[in-house]
Design a protein around this nucleic acid. Sequence first.
DNA 1: TATAATACTGACTAACCGGTCATTTGTCAA
DNA 2: TTGACAAATGACCGGTTAGTCAGTATTATA
Lengths: 276, 276
Amino acid sequence: MVKKQLIMEKALELFANQGFEATSIQQITEHCGISKGAFYLSFKSKDELILALIDHFMMQFTTDVDHVVRNTSDEQLLYQFYFTIFHSFQKHSDFAKVLIKEQTQTVNSELVEKTHYYNSLIEKDILVMVERLYGEAVKETKYDLIYCIKGFMTTYSHLFLFFNVPIDLDLLSQSLVEKTNLLAKHTTIPFITDDLLQMMEQPIKEEMTKEQLISLLEQKIEEIEEPIEKESLTLLKEQIGAPIFSPAIVKGLLENIKNHPDCKWISYLLRNYFTF
Amino acid sequence: MVKKQLIMEKALELFANQGFEATSIQQITEHCGISKGAFYLSFKSKDELILALIDHFMMQFTTDVDHVVRNTSDEQLLYQFYFTIFHSFQKHSDFAKVLIKEQTQTVNSELVEKTHYYNSLIEKDILVMVERLYGEAVKETKYDLIYCIKGFMTTYSHLFLFFNVPIDLDLLSQSLVEKTNLLAKHTTIPFITDDLLQMMEQPIKEEMTKEQLISLLEQKIEEIEEPIEKESLTLLKEQIGAPIFSPAIVKGLLENIKNHPDCKWISYLLRNYFTF
DNA sequence: TATAATACTGACTAACCGGTCATTTGTCAA
DNA sequence: TTGACAAATGACCGGTTAGTCAGTATTATA
């Protein structure tokens, strides 16, 4: 339908300049030269409009990125990756602005989910890329690298999105390729570990059940060799089944495992569990 | 006034969770346990409230950063810089959330200006730091480096601000020090040049005017009781109107007020003013 | 205790919001 | 020209918004 496209285009302009919430249906319809009722012939609600916008552009975007990652030679990949992304952001700068502006808004849960979904698709592609280009060399630091690449993407897009500055995409991509290679080849101190990544992904979904927590604990108890940590975990597991210890003791046990590198995740879950 | 603080605290909680626009005065006053009218006894409008919040926290924040940059030895500086910033973000996480959420909103022009102003202050400190640590070595790439440092700041703050994840600030700071050093020492392809920087800074307004600075000084002179500080402020005020003292005297006067708890902010502004 | 000053209240306003729906307009074939 | 159908309208609805202000409660002063 032509009307639907018109609304999406004109609404995107307003959203980019004023933000989603600050733009009223009235404004959109006036900007389109149609009546308020006509809007609701194309979209059930204002929310449906922005979700349609996100789907429309993010499908294209994720497909493009995926295509580049799958069909570019190693020596060109990183450059093509950055170039494709920035080119796309520049071409659809209004949408990019909306995406950046709304990604921190937490009002509409469906919007958050959708953004998170497309985000995870891109993240997967970056992971594939990083593993292909650097392999074992970045085994310990790959999540940091991914996070930095994503950081470069958003940070440097701000330049041409929110300052009206002419940008040499070729130079920008080259510059970021160099930076990425530097970080990939020389970083030795990882910050984002597997455990931390799991923690980040957790809160979107439901909380863990007692049973899941216990089975995770049993697994860790098997793995861990240090006697103090092992016993602490065992006692904490029993505490979940039948609370017998005082808060102080529980807190002490949690303290025992807190600094063990393989217990970060489980100690985080337990800390959450025992404060409720 | 106590009521004002109460409102600022409670409003900040709501803004952090729902965003500024999505939070109504009604909600704020209910959350405070006061009437709607009482709100308007403390603040002229909703906009004045968020501006007050930004001033309150950003004064503290920029002063802290400035203090670290000025008073830390070279080998500890970068680490202390990151640590201070993240520590502050963590301590005032509600404010940090609001700042990040609202920094892309372009509705309130005064808010945009204010944010930009404080941002430029921090940027100046980063510049000082980068030049001190790396000097001529980063002559061509220093603005890229600054932009990357700022990128690390915002990117990595997201981790603990928007995912409820316990963070080892020490490790994070170490990790970013390494990354920053890598970029500083090996980057050869600059992207952000002097010209580009000027273009970026163009559209936004001027910094504090002489008049604003003087009126702020007069206000402080009234408040302060200690004779040395009072006279120093008075002399500095005269110096702005008609420069008569030598740099050494000005520096001495600044030194006099530097450590007074109520003069941190004004001394910071003056220090900036007299170096131009 | 009486009076003055201050702090506080919440009903009220006018404007705007997203969304609805009875009505009008436009477009066909018959 | 008529009738059937779809497209489009905009007045209207209930609800919410930021902001106001006449009136009440509280406190300080004398």
